[in-house]
Design a protein around this nucleic acid. Structure first.
Lengths: 262, 262
DNA sequence: CATTCACTTCCACAATTCGGAAAGCCATAT
DNA sequence: ATATGGCTTTCCGAATTGTGGAAGTGAATG
């Protein structure tokens, strides 16, 4: 009797609910209680429980009896890993990333753009105590990350326009580029220099440089970045770090069977 | 009967089907056509289509129009990545360790390598009066422990070299491997047999066998060992104990979301 | 032009899922 | 010892929802 939302026809709504529940659980760093998960997913507790039980049976989530909390399960991970295989960019890139970390001493990340956001695929952490953290699967906005700018700087104009049009240029620090004009200027510079920069635009004290990776159609499909604290990534070092990132990106591009636009 | 098993209670069937379908799609390296996916999941084509459409709407799968094939989508990856953040080796391993102790009757230990040493994370003690003891947090040298050898045997060559270069191969018993040559030979054997041995190399009368545990990048990040007095861990029993340890290590690896190197 | 192979839509009916309510389970507080 | 509260788990009748065979579309191949 409670009036239900009008759902798209032809869709399996219990599945939609379950997937949202899965996202909710996956997004929580330290697990969720049933009631909390139900609340966040906007479901009655008993329904959430039934769905979670089923997800658990298939090992997509797991219930920790000690802490009475729900966590993501192995199968979700295994299924998601298939995503990386389907674009075996990660496999190709990993050795170069490791080498780049060794020669630069900073954390190396690999990311792609999806739906107006940056999504990190892999990361090689440096051995320093102070280091940037962006675990695989994490998302970041395009306008305040070096990788995002590196990718977008090489996108065709129409795509740039449509992506920028849909963005809201949220502010994170006082250096974040929040005007379309400023953002476009940064993209232009990135294109011209062939690498992009993030100078404390997402987090205070964090600097990154990123270089694009191209596919066989000369499209920038990904980028790798070097990131570290401002104290280590000084003005003087930026250029040389960018050079290293560019060199690695070039090698990955070639190994991946791609090439930079003419 | 202390804990009631929630078996077979109301499960959401459409969800189970969808998850299996997702697994099927994820398992295929180069995508699947609808009909192929349906066949592998044992579903009628129209049902598979409806489920895939819904999964696609939530971006758990994606449909490549050019190739007319289905692939895993970003959201599956993002959700699965949460697993990496929440997983805890000790929690995952403990039940398997307990079971291993029951079936072998010997003490089971879990250890990782850090800074050229072995660090014990957990231990399940056997019921025997005479038993090995290594409390959590305790350290041991790499060259005179089965776990150390199991882990190092699977490290990349450069890493092996740098770690060995920094070691001093201290002698503890008359069987301790104190020459680099002897140690390297032992590592080679361990790699070949897929398990490592410590035959009174650390303490007189103490024998251990250990098998490596891998992460998702196929790196040996930990090992589990069975250890006991020479009188019980006889030459004849070594092989079967090693087999048990290997089986358990394999299960832990899988549950942890990892896999052995190819 | 016929054939194959794959995707997509339709629809009536029954099986499935839904969710409120109530019962359990453990803590900690009174 | 008894109460309280937060959380999990099970129940069950009602009706919404998913089911799958069959027919339709479209593209590519012989």
């Amino acid at each position: 009797m409670p009036a239900q939302k009008t759902e798209r026809s032809g869709q399996v709504q219990s599945l939609v609910r379950a997937l949202n529940l899965l996202k909710v659980v996956a997004a929580a760093a330290d697990g969720l209680t049933l009631t909390e998960a139900a609340k966040r997913a906007g479901l009655p507790v008993s329904s959430a429980h039934r769905l979670l039980s089923t997800l658990q049976q298939e090992r997509f989530v797991r219930f920790d009896h000690e802490r009475t909390r729900w966590f993501v399960g192995v199968e979700a991970f295994a299924a998601g890993a298939g995503f990386l295989r389907s674009r075996d960019l990660v496999t190709v890139a990993r050795p170069y990333m490791r080498h780049l970390m060794e020669e630069s001493g900073e954390t190396v990340s690999l990311a792609v753009e999806e739906g107006g956001q940056v999504i990190y695929l892999a990361q090689i952490e440096c051995r320093q105590l102070m280091r940037a953290l962006a675990s695989p699967g994490q998302r970041a906005p395009l306008h305040s990350s070096a990788v995002g700018k590196a990718i977008l700087a090489y996108a065709p104009c129409e795509r740039q326009d449509s992506v920028i049009g849909a963005m809201k240029l949220e502010r994170f620090t006082e250096r974040t580029l929040t005007t379309e004009q400023g953002f476009r200027k940064a993209l232009g510079e990135a294109h011209h220099r062939q690498f992009a920069v993030d100078d404390e635009e997402y987090a205070i004290g964090l600097r990154c440089v990123a270089a694009p990776i191209f596919n066989e159609a000369h499209e920038a499909i990904a980028a790798i970045s070097l990131s570290g604290p401002k104290a280590r990534v000084t003005d003087g070092r930026m250029k040389s770090l960018a050079g290293l990132a560019q060199a690695a990106a070039g090698k990955i591009t070639r190994e991946f069977g791609g090439s930079a636009p003419v």
